[in-house]
Design a protein around this nucleic acid. Sequence first.
DNA 1: CTAATTCCTGCTATTTATCTAGGGATTTCA
DNA 2: TGAAATCCCTAGATAAATAGCAGGAATTAG
Lengths: 149, 149
Amino acid sequence: MRLSTKGRYGVRAMFDLAMHSQEGTITLKSVAQRENISEKYLEHLFANLKKAGLIHSVRGAQGGYRLARSPEEITLGDIIRVLEGPVSPTECVAGGIEAEKCERAQHCVMHLVWNNIREQINQVLDNYTLADICEEQRKLQNGGYMFYI
Amino acid sequence: MRLSTKGRYGVRAMFDLAMHSQEGTITLKSVAQRENISEKYLEHLFANLKKAGLIHSVRGAQGGYRLARSPEEITLGDIIRVLEGPVSPTECVAGGIEAEKCERAQHCVMHLVWNNIREQINQVLDNYTLADICEEQRKLQNGGYMFYI
DNA sequence: CTAATTCCTGCTATTTATCTAGGGATTTCA
DNA sequence: TGAAATCCCTAGATAAATAGCAGGAATTAG
């Protein structure tokens, strides 16, 4: 139940785009440097995020990336599902091809359990937006959270 | 964000123990057969569950395993944390040695994010007990859930 | 004693995660 | 137009984790 670097880097990179959204298009290179992520690796992640419609890209000199929607409209669930696949404790309730194989699903109590867990975890992730993170970052810089009052 | 077989088998095996708790000690072999899990693999899992105090064992002929506490007092979180380690989206908020390495935690907004996610996911897992699963199983057998009314 | 059972240690094949390599395609600016 | 900057694509290399196997030692009921 650990995120891989795909999900973690992805969220950090998207947060980075959100924080610099006023500067127009952001180069992959600058995101990679600020977030200390391998450029080549980040390329793969951005390719998936673009294909999923979460970011737009501008090619050529002075090109770069930007969020496709406002930070309020992008959740951690959106990002993580794109980069890590469906968030689900098991294959059998992930909704893919594997799920079809589980013929006993209708009579299997574990199916109910995992499905319940799946729904709740997705709800948690979908309730957290990039805007929320930006807000927390703002508070941090103001010292609000600094001393864990 | 997928459970490995450790966690899944572990939950199923513990549920199996709960369902047969009236029969005294349950042999590993019978659990493995009913749940279709490799005996040798299940040995490792039971060793960990025992070390963690979730089950008791009786050695020798007629021996076997039984739950150390009542099904109401054992949560999915208990089981999964034993077999898969701390449930946490990242190392840096998992509470282990790795967490110490993250010196910037106090000033890092991602730390807040992951910690928030971690707490909520654990809350979901800790709110689900073996007794809950037994109850769902009972309803299934009565046909209550059978047709997804 | 003997059969059944847990307990312990180590090994290994397979898969997955993470990152690297290298080049190609596209666009902008001078 | 041409060069620089950037996105785009495919393949593979390395390391770690997963999932399971093997063999036997220790324990106990009958």
